[in-house]
Design a protein around this nucleic acid. Structure first.
Lengths: 185, 185, 185, 185
DNA sequence: AATGAATGAGTTTTCATTCAT
DNA sequence: AATGAATGAAAACTCATTCAT
């Protein structure tokens, strides 16, 4: 519990949205978990939809920033770039499990506004650019970038949901597998 | 629209649940889409929770049956078993896209009852058995079966959500990738 | 209490709005007075604002219709036209006291929509036309029609609010007074 | 904006109550308009009801004082007394338009307490006394004083609401009309 | 069997009021 | 004294469920 009520609300909402979904979470549930009055939530957010969008943008931005920071230059070491992305994803999953689940289960929600969608697409664009650069290097298979993302992220998120990500040796194997799945043969 | 109201309700509910989630879907929405009166739904199901559970069991059962039918015997051809499962999954995805999305987005719902959970676990158990048999044959890597499922199913479902599953050549590639990811090296 | 719930809601809302104003009247108050569930009100009206606007249009339309029906032709008898309007106003006040109070206290509400304002202005326009015709006949003083309306209606509505309208002899006097106030001298 | 916060609050509340009514005006609205914190209002008034009552008494008292000051003695010149009241009403309307609107739209409010009602009735009593004196002089028609007030005040306030009071010539005409309406014929 | 109008419990949201600063 | 963040009771509104037809 921080000294900042907005953060408390964000944290409570994130956990509840991740567990029960947007529509399955009520404002009183969030208020109780955040230990604030229900009315307080409306001092920080116009309404429930505004809350979920602010939270979505915040989470996606944090995720994106983590992946972008220290991203290896395009100097030919595509494998290093892949590792960077993969292990930062793991890091994010371990440090912000609710945030990852929240993003994953809400990224297609009918309640997302244009801003949220733009931030999410910007994030995807960053990954796609990296993939395309790798493909031009001849290091990554010439499949649609969507598909390559799906394969790596799909396996990763599913494993995370099954709570198998904590296991160190499995992680390394998964990294290997995923790289093998997308690398040029 | 069938001549069977219960099927109309199932179909409408499945599509709406898949698109908007359980809590984001209202009974009047389902009634309108199914072209029945809202009250009619209560002639076929005790309540909304009963409907989602019946539907879940129905969808999972259909999925399971499709995978189990003609499943290659444990005669050593683990690769054939993998292909069977993989292409039946693809078949199910193509013929019942909403059903697959519905299962995927509702399989951890707080509203699922014991029966639903059992049916789902039975289905998983069938896959796990197949994997373990494959591992005993020495054909599949000795990772936790959860993890192996996650890798294959995760990539598969993500690709499906990105609407990339229709592409024939991609499909074959994915099948290859997945097999490579789990097969004994 | 009618057999028509919408009418019951209209009637209850009209009385409460007339007594306590739009913002001082709650939906549960209306529901209780109309002997319907609170939710029922939302089957007939989108929201509270929609209710007050529908009611306003209904009341103004009834008032206008009463004044317009059998309105004496423009054949020179302006005094007869005045009497018609005046006594129809009295008739409306006696038969629909709440409706008159409601119109009077809500005709400048910030919640009125374009339709309501148009219906109200159409009604005023009818009166203004009659006044202008009377002025062209040389029977009515050449003051702004707004002012002439204000004098007659102002006195009338105030007397009504003071519950003095019932007294037969007073009524006649008021009619005289008002006619004298606006007639050409 | 004065240097006196209580006056700022009074002024802001008066304008808002006049425009939107008691229930349509929120404390934060008043605070913002008065440029004080919402909590500050509660240093000067116990609660919203106390504020509206204090304001009502203040406004009615000012109005009453203006009418009472220099009121011509009962020496037979009833016409002069009428003119005094009429033009002081006009003066009040021009100098304190919001105050007049506020009094007019709140004088029957369910939230008024005994004090407010007493002050208002005292004010009415002063007028009624003047009328009755005029009637005893034989200068004013023998109608109920309520009715006479209604005729004059009703026309006056309605004209004011229609923003026609500013016109000098109209004003004189209205004064004439009103006097004619109530004077003994 | 089928309907959809009606309901009220439960939701989102507002706002008078309090209180720590 | 003054503030405005925080609150929760009460408002507006929704929707699962019932029931008369």
């Amino acid at each position: 519990m921080s000294t900042n009520k907005q953060d408390d609300i964000f944290e409570a909402a994130m956990q509840l949205f991740a567990e029960r979904g947007y529509d399955g979470t009520t404002i009183p549930m969030i208020a109780e978990k955040a230990k604030v009055g229900a009315g307080t939530i409306y001092r920080y957010f116009d309404n429930k939809e505004s809350l979920v969008n602010s939270l979505f943008i915040k989470c996606v931005s944090q995720f994106a920033e983590l992946l972008k920071n220290d991203f290896p230059a395009n100097n030919g070491d595509v494998r290093a770039q892949f590792s960077h992305i993969f292990y930062r994803m793991v890091q994010f999953a371990n440090h912000n499990p609710s945030a990852l689940l929240f993003i994953d289960s809400h990224c297609n929600g009918y309640y997302l506004n244009e801003d949220s969608i733009n931030v999410y697409n910007d994030f995807l664009t960053f990954i796609i650019r990296a993939i395309e650069a790798g493909q031009q290097e001849g290091a990554i298979r010439l499949l649609p970038s969507d598909a390559l993302i799906a394969i790596v992220y799909g396996a990763f998120i599913m494993l995370f949901k099954m709570e198998q990500l904590g296991k160190e040796e499995l992680l390394k194997e998964l990294g290997e597998s995923c790289w093998n799945a997308i690398r040029m043969i």
